[in-house]
Design a binder for these strands. Structure first.
Lengths: 357, 357
DNA sequence: ATGTCACATGAATCCACCT
DNA sequence: TAGGTGGATTCATGTGACA
């Protein structure tokens, strides 16, 4: 399916603009919604300076109700334009993240993780009345419970000292050269660091995917998407921000497609059956396989099954059987002998796979 | 005002029991309510052993609506029994924290901070499908917008190497000797570490204050309160938990009020992965890395892995691969070129680390 | 006593594909 | 769509056996 408006910034209110997009046309939505909605949106009442407690609480309730209505409206549209296996990221602070998270769940999204962006250089709390607000929260959710969102597990692990990536990410704020300036002042009050979007997009999209950002601002999502070989659709109602984003993205040089591809996952490699090892002559019928400690021995049969005195069947079933386990990965459990040493039969599968290229 | 039931554990449903308490009688509420986990079938580790998930009856709810109704009911009572300047702490994970936070706001509490408990030793993700769930979230809120909750800013700062205490707390899980056992098995599936409560109570209560915990469990709140010279009121409906808590608290020796009990360790040095060099723009996708003698060349990929014609993966795996070695420290093996000279990528990691201080 | 290694375990919404 | 099967998948820490 082709996505309209690919790699461009649409002007207008994101709810209205999303309504003009077809169903199921984007792979990912990344959203950094405002939480300090001012009068312009017509969503909150004015902040009365001298009110009694009752009115104060009522006012607070009204504001929350209006914010919730706004949140549900844009999230519903975002969900509609997501593909079945699409996913959503939203980011917020304690002012709005609980309302966002609640709406995400109520609309049928299925949360995969919440992630905390721990800031290396947060703004201190000057008045000494609270803890320094040193983090923001992101929510990663599939379109629904059945969705299987993209997750480049092996890339993340390899990039993280071969240890799986955790839900806490320590990253600096957007400062210095990266921070867009207009006349010496910051162009946008809450510009997100590209490193944050880099991690989001390289973790949960593939090259060529389309990422929608309904609160595009100065276009960090678009800039990183372009650099990583992903497509973006931005929505922004403030022309100043949109113009700044366009200029910024125009200057981005995309990575070579070869460099943008995530590490291939074993789950997506071509399937090689155990029988192919015998067919190809890598293992002879009648040869013996051993568990790592040589405690269990099985005989290879010509039809691609294993045989012990007690168990017959696939390498997995027999491996589970001899261990009295519920399941077993026969490729790593069973070993063949060569020059007196044992090696997993998985290494023979690799030989077959190499021959398939 | 005297508080009834001080330093004791009340048996029963927390909503009913709280209704029997007078208005405005406690200084702090700490609550660790059921998380409504909604786990699927069984989960096994890669070594085939079973994961002991939380499948207790008390964590089961019909729907989000049922959970929300329960949440609002106990929070409303908690708010009623709080003094005007009293405060609330709740803890949860992404399964329930957004619903908790919403209810907290809707009922008129005023959030001071959200705090993330970053776990040093979380359970990994065993199937490689998500980020390791390595944190939980706490919300600290005043009874209402006008409340001025206790906050021991200066003692926190002094105990934190004279740096302002932040909203991210790095602490280990409750394991080892601290974990209560019954017949060799854990007494409670979700016992919280005392270090966490220590930080909560020393930060936001004064000696002599009364702390109510409506989900007392095995009484971590009571144990820490007693040690720190605070009073507690616990509510627990499971007699086994309540009994265990009573025995535990009886053995606690209160600290001498003069003693500044040591606060748990400061935050650990976060891991810096090779991926962060690319995320931060220190290395561009497609740039080349060399071994010291330029015999081997690898290309940097956007996902934080390396690629030669033969090997793909982490800097360490690829370094080992090209040398045909069992292992390799990629940080010192791989070099980048600058002004015609080679420098180890470890020097770029130092740049990242400097930015994190 | 000291070091090594095997083993256990923690609030977990934890698979993909084919028939 | 429900069920069956192939086969992919873990980090930090504490305890205890054993050399």
């Amino acid at each position: 399916m082709t996505t309209p408006y690919k790699d461009s910034i649409l002007r207008g209110d994101c709810i209205e603009v999303m309504k003009s997009l077809p169903d199921a046309c984007v792979d990912l939505v990344f959203a950094d919604p405002p939480y300090n909605l001012q009068l312009g949106g017509g969503l909150t009442r004015p902040d009365q300076s001298d009110v009694d407690g009752v009115t104060d609480e009522w006012d607070q309730f009204e504001s929350f109700a209006a914010y919730d209505a706004f949140t549900k409206a844009w999230l519903a549209e975002a969900r509609r334009v997501l593909k079945p296996n699409g996913a959503l990221w939203v980011i917020g602070s304690y002012h709005n993240i609980f309302r966002l998270g609640c709406a995400v769940q109520d609309l049928g999204f299925w949360i995969q993780n919440d992630v905390v962006w721990v800031k290396t250089n947060p703004m201190p709390n000057f008045r000494g009345t609270r803890f320094a607000n040193a983090h923001e929260t992101l929510i990663w959710a599939g379109r629904d419970k059945k969705s299987r969102p993209t997750f480049n597990y092996h890339s993340l692990k390899a990039a993280n000292e071969d240890v799986q990536m955790r839900s806490d990410w320590t990253l600096p704020l957007c400062t210095g050269q990266e921070r867009l300036k207009t006349g010496g002042k910051k162009t946008h009050p809450t510009q997100k660091p590209e490193a944050l979007l880099h991690r989001v997009l390289s973790a949960t999209t593939n090259p060529g995917d389309v990422v929608l950002d309904p609160f595009f601002g100065t276009g960090t999502t678009g800039a990183v998407a372009k650099r990583l070989g992903r497509h973006f659709v931005g929505i922004e109602r403030d022309e100043t921000y949109a113009k700044a984003a366009e200029a910024r993205i125009a200057s981005i040089v995309p990575a070579d497609p070869e460099d943008a591809a995530p590490l291939p996952s074993p789950r997506r490699q071509p399937r090689v059956g155990f029988g192919q090892l015998i067919e190809s002559g890598l293992l002879a019928p009648g040869s013996k396989l051993y568990c790592p400690k040589r405690k269990h021995i099985a005989r290879v049969k010509a039809d691609g099954t294993l045989d012990t005195s007690l168990h017959q069947g696939s390498i997995h079933k027999v491996g589970a059987g001899v261990q009295n386990a519920a399941s077993c990965n026969g490729w790593t459990f069973w070993h063949y002998e060569e020059a007196g040493k044992l090696a997993p039969i998985d290494s023979l599968r690799s030989v077959i796979r190499r021959g398939m290229n």
